[in-house]
């Protein structure tokens, strides 16, 4: 543009860049630096901290393997179940008369603070049936009370005789109980976003499919899901990032005890409880590397959609 000096745009950008530099770039760079230093960040230890994560030498204090596996579980189960439930609820609530009421009640958990929700559910899962609603329900149905948050999957009599002990090791009742709370909180979000997408599908398209000979399931599977797929991807990416970063629920409900740690809780513990900044930083970097590709994919996708608009 005529009469504009080259540095004018940079001048306007400077405050934002400065803030980003101080609060984002510097911490990231410093975390990466510390992940190669010892616990007091004094001397260079090479890849020792990363080796610690891979070898898992102190499974009783900081079980890095179970944290990584739990995170994979959060990633897959939390995302999968939430998207699936959100989609089903979006379709179902769209067909009832009291749609607004149904949607609001499912969306309410989203409005509760995560810490508050975690506290609520700690009471819900409480072993004592006078406090724990879940166990009160189980026992009134003739089952036995379970300590949901501490239970690591030892044989249970309240489900079936050979129930949970046939599950593979990382799949523990307490992890599933935690993930369930995450699902409870985020299903409303998935439902609302997907339902908005659903409203965008013209009824004539669905009617055309019906006349073409499709039954309700085929319409859902071959028309609705493909048309909604961009929205599903957006919801899934948001949830994947949520699942990977999950800290609050786990921290408040179990504090990472009984093998419920995820990477986020473990690096906090390592850095600020154990006092090993090296391992803590290395765990944070692992998490960053995990989130990065998903961020890149979703940003690319967003740019692509902007261009094709």
């Amino acid at each position: 543009m005529v009469g504009r000096r080259w540095w004018t745009p940079w001048l306007w950008l400077a405050p934002a860049l400065a803030l980003l530099g101080v609060f984002l770039v510097y911490p990231v760079v410093d975390t990466v630096r510390r992940s190669f230093l010892d616990e007091r960040s004094k001397s260079f230890v090479g890849l020792d901290n990363y080796r610690f994560i891979i070898d898992n030498p102190q499974p009783l204090v900081s079980d890095t393997h179970s944290a990584l596996l739990n995170n994979i579980m959060w990633l897959t189960l939390f995302t999968g179940i939430t998207v699936a439930l959100g989609l089903i609820l979006a379709v179902l609530t769209g067909r009832v008369r009291y749609e607004a009421a149904a949607k609001s009640s499912i969306f309410i958990p989203m409005a509760i603070s995560f810490v508050a929700a975690a506290v609520i559910w700690r009471f819900m899962y409480e072993f004592n049936t006078d406090i724990g609603t879940v166990n009160a329900a189980v026992t009134s149905a003739g089952g036995e009370s379970t300590d949901w948050l501490r239970d690591t999957g030892s044989p249970q009599t309240w489900l079936t005789e050979r129930g949970p002990d046939t599950m593979p090791r990382p799949i523990q009742i307490n992890n599933l109980a935690l993930i369930f709370v995450g699902v409870w909180m985020w299903t409303g979000f998935a439902m609302v976003v997907l339902s908005a997408g659903l409203k965008g599908i013209s009824t004539e398209v669905l009617e055309a499919a019906r006349v073409d000979g499709a039954n309700e399931w085929q319409i859902f599977r071959r028309i609705i899901v493909p048309i909604l797929s961009p929205t599903i991807v957006v919801v899934a990416t948001t949830l994947v990032i949520q699942g990977l970063k999950k800290f609050d629920l786990v921290w408040v409900m179990t504090g990472g005890r009984a093998k419920t740690d995820v990477v986020a809780t473990l690096f906090y513990k390592e850095a600020f409880r154990v006092g090993d900044f090296g391992v803590g930083a290395a765990l944070a970097v692992v998490l960053l590397l995990w989130v990065l590709p998903i961020m890149v994919i979703s940003i690319r996708r967003f740019q692509f959609q902007e261009e094709t608009r």
Binding site: S202, E204, V205, E207, A208, R210, V211, D212, I223
Partner: peptide, 16 residues
Amino acid sequence: AKDRDIAMVFQSYALY
């Protein structure tokens, strides 16, 4: 509708 053996052309065309 799916079993009526009829085909329909809509005002908006309703293509997938």
